[in-house]
Amino acid sequence: MNHDFSELEGILARYPKAPASLVMLLQDIQEAYNYLPCEALQQVADELKVPHSQVFSVATFYKVFSLTPKGRTIVRVCKGTACHVRGAQLITDECERLLGLRPGETADDLEFTLEVVNCVGACAMAPVVVVGEKYHGAVKPNRVRKVLGVKRC
C-alpha cells in the first residue's frame, strides 16, 4: 500500500525521542492511518532508538494496533456476557449480512471493519454496538441498518 508519509514527521515530533513515547506514537499513527504501516514501525524504531523487533513486539501485543489496514469506520459488536444473553449473536449476524464481512474482516473499499469484542463496559445498555466512536445501546436486529448507516445490502 502506498502512503503519503508526510504526516508521520508531524506525529513523531509530538513526543520526546525516548522509549517511553513508543505506545503514544503508535496510537497516533494507528489513528492517522487506521493501521501501522511497516515503514512507520521502522521509522519509529530509528527515531526512538528502540530495537525494531521490540517495536514490532509492542505493535502486535495490543489489540488496538493493527498491521493490516482497517476501515474508516470500525464496527464493534459487543459479545460480553450481558450482550450475549441479550442477543448479540443476532446482531452480529445482521452486521455480517449488511456489511458482507465476517468478524475481523475489512471491506475492500476500506469503508468498514467488523469486529466482535468481549466487553465495551456498557453492560446496562446491552446489546451494544459501537460504530466508530458512537455507542448504540439496546440494539435490535431491525435497527442495525440504521445504526450502521448503510444503504447497501
Partner: peptide
C-alpha cells in the same frame, strides 16, 4: 536485539519483525 516475542497469549511466537508465519 534482532528477535522478540510477537503477538500474545496462545498466539505468541518468537522471531524478527514480520517473521512468524502468521504475519505477512
Amino acid at each position: 536485539h534482532a528477535i522478540a516475542g510477537a503477538d500474545r497469549g496462545v498466539h505468541k511466537q518468537v522471531g524478527p519483525p514480520y517473521a512468524p508465519p502468521s504475519f505477512e
